[in-house]
Write a protein that binds this DNA or RNA. Structure first.
Length: 630
DNA sequence: GCACCTCGAGTTCA
DNA sequence: CTCGAGGTGC
């Protein structure tokens, strides 16, 4: 490997990027760097029954105004979604799905996949082509890898998908190469200068271009045919050399797809029919209670450990008291367990016939399991909560939330550190975090010189987090990350927000009476006010600078007109237009000279061209988001 | 008033 | 991923 790179460095002209000797190599330093997808990588809505499939079909046919909807059925390979980029027909990059917007760079590892074309068989390839597909391991390879791992005493992979994911996360592409991953492509992420009539046509094009597409695809014209395909493969799945977990059904015509549109999570023109999950039975030994940061008391089932879908399950959430009643789950029951989405364990139902009478019904206690305080379940609500504002469990969870990544992002302040700081009485609330010095930090177990330094610096850095993060971190009920962003877009400081009236708050898009009340109540509470004051004293930034100069003011779009075009991914169209209105601007549907900004989403239409010809400012959705949130 | 989306909050295991 | 709940549009 070293030598290969050295040769390349010495004689770059001798090596073309698609040379067969170049499967293993690349820039290790780029590995796993974040990569922004050109268009969001969505997931799919699921159907678990014929009924749900029917509901999907009814919805699309009513929205399209016809029962005649041609659909494409494809097997749903149980692997890892990847995005592949080709520039002028040459493979230049690959990324994982990540959160859909930003994935990780796995260019070097994907390059080792033998069936990946390094150069496309196209006369005039598009300047940029991004295709999406599934990297997977055959059942055979999976077995072999696990056998080797067993011999080496390494932990086994639970299933081919985990093994495939693990293989793509290798720092050394040579390891990935030895795993012999397969690859099927099935979708277009982005392409310059080409258009297709439908999914079927796209698949044929991808095949011609040199990609592997899964051979088991079919075009159908009715719901019944689609369902037959699902049933057929549910039966035959075991005869395939790779694992599948369902069938994907897509509306074939791209014109119809466009008409149906997207939600922020998934296209509305496709659905994944999922085969029934693997189920096991085990005994429910006990029901434990957890107290969350809002005081919510959540019952969790403690199970006799059992292997389900490749991993051992020992606990499963039961959500709330009603859920337990509805399913009639009792302590001591034999229960059926499965994994929702193959990840989160779930109790499906008890096996009533196995009862011997010793089972006990669950009763939500009136006393908090953590502090003994009162547990109250308000009329009409599902969740029971500990109402003691001094409950140590609530305070602990609150601190964890405050320091978490989406909030103040204090690296090093995890469960163990928080627990010790609280137990030793060094901190009592989140504001005390900012009064810690190195000496106090050294008192924490496992915190030597360096760790204490790191944490101290992380705390210092967190004082500069944007207003939205701080508002989220405060833990105001009903104010999650999203609402916090909205609030930060409407108020320039904590101070201003704390003086807002209910009327002012309800004016804001996406803030209704409940959220307004919760905010008012939060700032009414003395203890909260003093925490905020302590944070301010410590130097935590409580306001945000307005974007200055010629740019827009984050507070006001007064007199400005916005037009949205293309599919938005960060907001729904309604939200985006609502935000503009709530900030005093106008959202219009057609572009004119008077339009101030055209915000382009995915696959922008003619409005984009018009804006260009009129010289109207064109901004991306990200730019728009920054404008809105300051 | 209802249906539909989102969001919030809690959660599992490796 | 789940459920429950808040907000919005018809």
């Amino acid at each position: 490997m070293r030598e290969l790179i050295d040769i390349e460095a010495a004689h770059p002209e001798l090596i073309t990027p698609d040379s067969p000797t170049q499967r293993v190599g690349g820039e290790p330093s780029d590995a796993f760097k974040p990569v922004r997808h050109r268009t969001k990588m969505l997931s799919l809505a699921n159907a678990f029954s014929f009924g749900e499939l029917t509901a999907f079909f009814n919805r699309i046919s009513s929205e399209l105004g016809t029962e005649k909807v041609e659909m494409v059925c494809e097997l749903k390979i149980d692997g890892v979604a990847v995005a592949l980029t080709y520039e002028h027909g040459i493979y230049t990059g690959a990324a994982t799905r990540g959160d859909g917007e930003v994935g990780e760079d796995i260019t070097a590892n994907v390059k080792t996949i033998q069936s990946l074309p390094l150069r496309l068989f196209l006369g005039s390839p598009p300047d940029i082509l991004e295709v999406r597909g599934e990297a997977y391991l055959s059942k055979e390879q999976f077995k072999q890898i696990n056998e080797e791992r067993e011999e080496d005493g390494q932990p086994l992979f639970a299933n081919p998908r985990n093994a495939a994911a693990g293989s793509l996360r290798q720092l050394d592409p040579k390891v990935t190469s030895r795993r012999h991953l397969g690859l099927f492509v099935y979708a277009l992420g982005y392409a310059t200068g080409i258009e297709f009539p439908d999914q079927w046509g796209l698949l044929q094009y991808l095949k011609t271009a040199g990609f592997k597409i899964n051979p088991h695809i079919t075009k159908v014209g009715t719901l019944k045919e689609a369902y037959s395909f699902c049933e057929e493969w549910q039966e035959k799945r075991h005869s395939l050399p790779f694992e599948i977990d369902g069938v994907v059904i897509k509306v074939n015509s791209f014109a119809q797809q466009k008409k149906l549109g997207l939600t922020s999570k998934a296209p509305r023109w496709a659905i994944a029919y999922k085969f029934p999950a693997e189920q096991k039975t085990t005994r429910l030994i006990d029901i434990e209670l957890n107290v969350g940061r809002t005081g919510a008391v959540t019952p969790t089932a403690v199970l006799e450990p059992v292997v389900v879908a490749g991993s051992t399950v020992g606990r499963a959430t039961l959500h709330n008291e009603d859920e337990i009643k509805r399913k009639d789950i009792r302590i001591g029951d034999t229960v059926i367990v499965q994994k929702a989405g193959d990840v989160i364990p779930e109790i499906v139902a008890p096996i009533v016939s196995k009862r011997d009478g010793s089972e006990k019904e669950f009763v939500m206690p009136h006393e908090c399991p953590a502090c003994g305080g009162e547990v109250v379940r308000p009329e009409g609500e599902a969740v029971a909560r500990c109402v003691n504002i001094n409950c140590p469990a609530v305070i602990f969870e609150h601190i964890i939330h405050f320091a978490s990544r989406g909030a103040m992002d204090i690296e090093g302040l995890g469960e163990s550190a928080a627990r010790q700081l609280l137990d030793k009485g060094i901190i009592k609330d989140v504001a005390d975090i900012y009064y810690l010095d190195k000496e106090k930090l050294l008192g924490i177990e496992h915190f030597a010189d360096k760790a204490a330094d790191n944490l101290y610096n992380a705390i210092k850095r967190s004082k500069e987090r944007p207003l939205a993060k701080l508002l989220f971190a405060l833990g105001i009920r009903h104010v999650g990350s999203h609402v916090a962003e909205v609030l930060a877009g409407n108020f320039e400081s904590v101070e201003k927000l704390s003086h807002a009236t209910p009327e002012e708050l309800i004016e804001i898009q996406e803030v209704g009476p409940k959220i307004a009340e919760s905010i008012i109540e939060f700032f009414h509470e003395n203890r909260n006010r003093s925490v905020v004051e302590k944070l301010r004293q410590a130097g935590v930034k409580m306001e945000q600078e307005k974007p200055g100069g010629a740019g827009l003011s984050a507070r006001s779009f007064a007199g400005m007109t916005f037009v949205f075009t293309g599919a938005l991914t960060l907001f729904t169209r309604g939200e985006a237009e609502g935000l503009v209105k709530s900030m005093g601007g106008k959202a219009s549907s057609s572009v004119s000279k008077k339009t101030d900004y055209v915000v382009v989403g995915e696959n922008p239409g003619s409005k984009y061209d018009k804006a260009k010809s009129l010289g109207v400012k064109i901004i991306t959705e990200d730019d728009f988001k920054r404008l809105v949130s300051g």
